[in-house]
C-alpha cells in the first residue's frame, strides 16, 4: 500500500518563495544555474572487503555502494546468464526522515529504477557471468547505502552503482569434480565485464522551471520529478516520473533534452574516477 507521505520536511513558505524568485532570475540557492548538477566526487575501492565499491558525493548527498558476489543457480529462463540484484537501504543515520526497518517504497523505487537501467541495457555482461551454464553462475549483489541525504538520491546512487560495478573484481575459484565451486576471496583477479555505462539525471519541476539535480529543499518544494537514464550515445535507457505532480508533454520532452546534456558532466566524473581502459 502506498500512502501520501505524512512525514515531510517542513520547508517554510519563505524558503519556497526564495527558491522560486531565484529561479525566475536563473539562479538557485546552491549558487549554480538550472541545468548544472552540484559538485560531483566519485571515489572507488573504498571498502576493501567488497568485490567492488564506490562512494559518491553530490553536493552534500553521500551514497556508498558495495558489490558482493556469490555463486548461485541461474534463473530458469536465462540458464546461461548471471544474476544481478540491486537493493537500496535508506539507513536511518542518513536523514531525520529515515526510519529503521525494511526498505520502504522510496528505497524500493530507487533500487528498481537503477536495476532496470543496468538490466535493460545489459550494462553488465550477464553472459560472461556463467560458470557452468545451467547450474552455476555468478550472483552480483549491488547494495546501495545512503549515508547523507540532501536530495537526488537517484543520480548519486546510479553514479555510485556504475562506479562500483566498474571497480568490481570477481574472486578466483576452483571447480571441483563434483561440480562444486570453491571461492578464494583472498584473490580477486577477474574484472567484471561492463558492456555499457549508464547514468541518470534527475530533473525537478518547480513551478514552471525544470532544474537538474535538485537538492533536498528543491525536491521538497518540487511539483514532481523525472529521472531519465542515458547511455553514452545519448539513447534514453529508462525513465521514471517520481513524485506527486504532473508534467505536460512539452515539459517531459524538454526534461529529456536537458538531461541529455547534463549527463555528460556525470559521465566525465565517472571517467575520471574509474579511468579503466576498456
Amino acid at each position: 500500500m502506498s500512502l501520501t507521505p505524512f512525514k515531510v520536511p517542513i520547508v517554510p513558505e519563505l524558503r519556497k518563495s526564495t527558491i522560486l524568485s531565484l529561479l525566475a532570475k536563473g539562479l538557485r540557492t546552491s549558487e549554480r544555474d538550472l541545468v548544472t548538477p552540484r559538485i560531483v566526487k566519485v571515489k572507488t575501492g573504498v571498502i576493501e572487503r567488497a568485490e567492488g565499491s564506490a562512494q559518491v558525493e553530490l553536493g552534500n548527498t553521500k551514497v556508498l555502494v558495495g558489490v558482493k558476489t556469490d555463486v548461485g543457480a541461474p534463473f530458469r529462463d536465462t540458464p546461461d546468464e548471471g544474476v544481478i540484484t540491486v537493493n537500496a537501504e535508506l539507513v536511518p543515520l542518513a536523514s531525520p526522515l529515515f526510519e529503521p526497518g525494511p526498505p520502504d517504497e522510496n528505497a524500493i523505487e530507487l533500487a528498481r529504477v537503477i536495476d532496470r537501467s543496468i538490466r535493460e541495457t545489459n550494462a553488465v555482461d550477464r553472459k560472461s557471468l556463467a560458470i557452468i551454464p545451467g547450474s552455476k553462475v555468478w550472483v552480483i549483489h549491488v547494495d546501495i547505502y545512503v549515508l547523507d541525504h540532501d536530495g537526488n538520491l537517484f543520480d548519486a546512487s546510479m553514479l555510485a552503482t556504475m562506479a562500483a560495478l566498474m571497480n568490481t573484481m570477481l574472486p578466483d575459484y576452483e571447480e571441483l569434480e563434483t561440480g562444486e565451486i570453491i571461492l578464494d576471496r583472498s584473490k580477486k583477479t577477474t574484472p567484471l565485464k561492463i558492456n555499457k555505462k549508464v547514468l541518470t539525471v534527475n530533473i525537478a519541476k518547480i513551478g514552471d522551471y525544470l532544474v537538474v539535480d535538485p537538492d533536498l529543499d528543491e525536491e521538497t518544494v518540487a511539483d514532481t520529478r523525472i529521472v531519465v537514464a542515458y547511455d553514452e550515445e545519448g539513447n534514453i535507457v529508462g525513465i521514471q516520473k517520481s513524485g506527486p505532480g504532473a508534467m505536460s508533454r512539452e515539459e517531459v520532452l524538454k526534461a529529456v533534452d536537458i538531461g541529455r546534456e547534463a549527463v555528460k558532466i556525470y559521465f566525465k566524473s565517472l571517467e575520471e574516477a574509474t579511468g579503466r581502459a576498456e
Partner: peptide, 29 residues
C-alpha cells in the same frame, strides 16, 4: 489527463532514441 493536458505517470523500461520517445509518447497520448 487529456482535459488538462497533464502526464501523471510516466515510465520507460528499455532503450529508445529521442525520436522514438517523442513518437511513442504521442502514440500513447
Amino acid at each position: 489527463a487529456p482535459d488538462i493536458e497533464k502526464i501523471t505517470l510516466f515510465q520507460l523500461n528499455g532503450v529508445l532514441t529521442r525520436e522514438e520517445l517523442e513518437k511513442g509518447l504521442d502514440m500513447a497520448l
